[in-house]
Amino acid sequence: MKKTLLLLIPLILILASCSSNKSNLNTYLIPKNYVGWVQIIYDQEEFNAIEQDHGRNIFTIPESGVLKTSTPDVEYGISFEEFYYYDEQNKQQKLDVDQMIHGHTIGDGESVTSSGKIEGPTVQSFFVGTEAELKNTPDPGYPVELMK
């Protein structure tokens, strides 16, 4: 009995801590046949906020691969992400994340003021395409024009 309790207590604690974390349900809609880097640039006042649909964040990526949004920052926590190609009729085709999505990163501007404050907005990046296509496409890095 004591052994069972010793095993159950840590398991319950782990499950309880997982359930208190914020979960993000993210759907990325990418133009059909797009291959290249996608960048989502947060905290851009003149652009729309990220769409919400039944608790999901909907990121509709334009043909350029760069989505600017007024949403202040990415929400951190456990993410459940889905990636789809979409066409002109909004027909969607789910992408195999292991085969077609690579290098998913989230970062802030690298410039630091004398007070130590980061000056650039958060940028989320990922590559859409095969590993072979990724090898032939350089990472665009943080957009320097965003630095204030």
Results as ranks from 00 to 15, higher is better:
residue 9 I to V: 15
residue 58 I to C: 11
residue 99 Q to Y: 08
residue 29 L to E: 06
residue 35 V to G: 00
residue 134 L to H: 00
residue 34 Y to D: 01
residue 24 N to M: 15
residue 100 M to D: 03
residue 86 Y to D: 03
residue 46 E to D: 02
residue 34 Y to S: 02
residue 3 K to P: 00
residue 74 V to D: 14
residue 27 T to G: 04
residue 97 V to K: 13
residue 15 L to D: 09
residue 78 I to M: 13
residue 127 F to N: 00
residue 54 H to I: 12
residue 9 I to E: 06
residue 104 H to R: 09
residue 18 C to Y: 15
residue 56 R to Y: 13
residue 134 L to Q: 02
residue 72 P to G: 11
residue 73 D to E: 09
residue 85 Y to F: 07
residue 60 T to C: 12
residue 128 V to R: 01
residue 65 G to V: 15
residue 22 K to S: 13
residue 71 T to A: 07
residue 69 T to K: 06
residue 94 K to T: 08
residue 37 W to P: 03
residue 138 P to M: 06
residue 25 L to K: 14
residue 107 G to S: 09
residue 69 T to L: 08
residue 27 T to F: 04
residue 4 T to N: 08
residue 102 H to G: 02
residue 120 G to D: 05
residue 53 D to M: 12
residue 138 P to V: 08
residue 56 R to P: 01
residue 144 V to T: 11
residue 81 E to C: 07
residue 7 L to Q: 11
residue 30 I to R: 00
residue 68 K to R: 14
residue 124 Q to W: 04
residue 33 N to R: 10
residue 30 I to M: 03
residue 128 V to T: 03
residue 79 S to T: 13
residue 61 I to R: 08
residue 101 I to N: 05
residue 38 V to S: 00
residue 101 I to H: 04
residue 9 I to F: 14
residue 20 S to V: 15
residue 134 L to K: 01
residue 32 K to A: 03
residue 134 L to W: 01
residue 137 T to I: 01
residue 142 Y to V: 00
residue 109 G to Y: 05
residue 11 L to Q: 10
residue 86 Y to A: 01
residue 92 Q to N: 07
residue 69 T to Q: 08
residue 61 I to Q: 10
residue 69 T to Y: 07
residue 15 L to V: 14
residue 2 K to E: 10
residue 125 S to R: 06
residue 61 I to C: 10
residue 77 G to D: 09
residue 129 G to H: 03
residue 36 G to P: 02
residue 79 S to F: 05
residue 80 F to N: 13
residue 97 V to Q: 11
residue 52 Q to N: 13
